[in-house]
Write a protein that binds this DNA or RNA. Structure first.
Lengths: 207, 207
DNA sequence: GTCTATAGGGTGATAGAC
DNA sequence: GTCTATCACCCTATAGAC
């Protein structure tokens, strides 16, 4: 226990580097050399800490998926009234995606190639994906019955919410060109978008 | 010109195979061997027809982006009234994506890694991306001024339309689990979704 | 713990026979 | 045009010195 330099210092550096490289390039295009350079260390060290590229990737990927789902699960199962809940979802998604720009395209791309990974990981994260909609659906139907919102299919509504919030980040390079914005401009548009989406949905749901 | 077997028969087979493999795995993960097998031929033949993996990919990618944008451009620049135009966009996107399930995640993933490719290709396709919004914006503002729709930012509206239509396909594996559907069920939900989205937008835009 | 050197396997591309 | 054989390189992983 005497001669170790910064034990979990380098481990942390590696994890950050791996996250950056994997997230930006995807598993196949990412090379161990890229990660080592990004972390300022040697390739062999990566294997010393994490054995293999696959093991490293699984770790990173699981973390990323958790970010994507854990917060969402809490909101979905909370006791807020429907409109507030929708507002919270939108704010949460956009806030997270502003902090992690490459997150959704990375997760969705890797998931598309390995759909089975999804279940195991998401359940680990505590958010049974198939249960996400259950409570939400009940609440939507209750509001419809009470006449406070228009007749709508809960699943379709949920897809609309997620699509409006997440899609611009997935299509970021296209959006930047079409809107003629740089990164700063893009982020400012996404900040406005929080209120824009919520208003849009509230009006769309009016009876 | 006597002994050649099926000249553009194999070429066509290769293109189809390349499209399938590249679209499903992305450039980095796709191997020439995969494509050759899928086409029922030999690796060397791929190089005989298309020289290199890069050249092959560029070709496929350009075609895919064209599918994505060419039809959209026509609709955006047409003379339909606003609501009809929005309806046409939604129907067009969902129809195309039902026919090409892996298209958006593929295009968006590769674009994220090579944003510069975007411009050259999209302009080739005849749809200046930065002009896509111009006419649409004017029309939206006209309707607002006429009092037929609510005050809305055209760019935000456009992102909402595209997000609602495209996102479920990008997140297809997640959606299938959350909605507990198989492929057939997913497609039927997306068919319903055409009307769902249009209604949603019309209500959201009511003054 | 961290490095250098190298093994071992895979992949894109070409040469050359048919 | 289509195949087999092979080259040359790159990348993951490990062995071994410090």
């Amino acid at each position: 226990m005497v001669n170790k330099k910064d034990d979990n210092q380098t481990e942390k550096a590696i994890l950050e580097a791996a996250d950056k490289v994997f997230t930006q390039k995807g598993f196949a295009a990412a090379r161990m050399e890229d990660i080592a350079q990004e972390a300022g260390i040697n390739r062999a060290l990566l294997h010393y800490y994490f054995r293999s590229k696959d093991k490293m990737f699984d770790l990173i990927f699981q973390q990323r998926v958790s970010i994507f789902f854990s917060g969402l699960g809490q909101i979905m199962h909370s006791e807020k009234p429907l409109i507030e809940k929708i507002q919270a979802i939108v704010e949460h998604e956009i806030t997270i995606l502003l902090a992690h720009p490459y997150l959704p395209i990375f997760v969705l791309q890797e998931l598309n190639q390995n759909p089975h990974r999804m279940l195991a990981i998401a359940e680990n994260a505590g958010a049974h994906p198939s249960l996400l909609l259950k409570k939400f659906s009940v609440e939507v139907r209750a509001e419809i019955k009470a006449g406070t919102i228009r007749e709508t299919d809960p699943a379709q509504l949920f897809m609309s919410i997620m699509g409006m919030a997440i899609y611009p980040f997935v299509a970021r390079p296209v959006v930047k060109i079409i809107l003629e914005k740089d990164d700063v401009g893009f982020e400012s548009v996404m900040l406005q978008r929080k209120k824009e989406i919520t208003d849009f949905i509230i009006h769309a749901l009016k009876p």
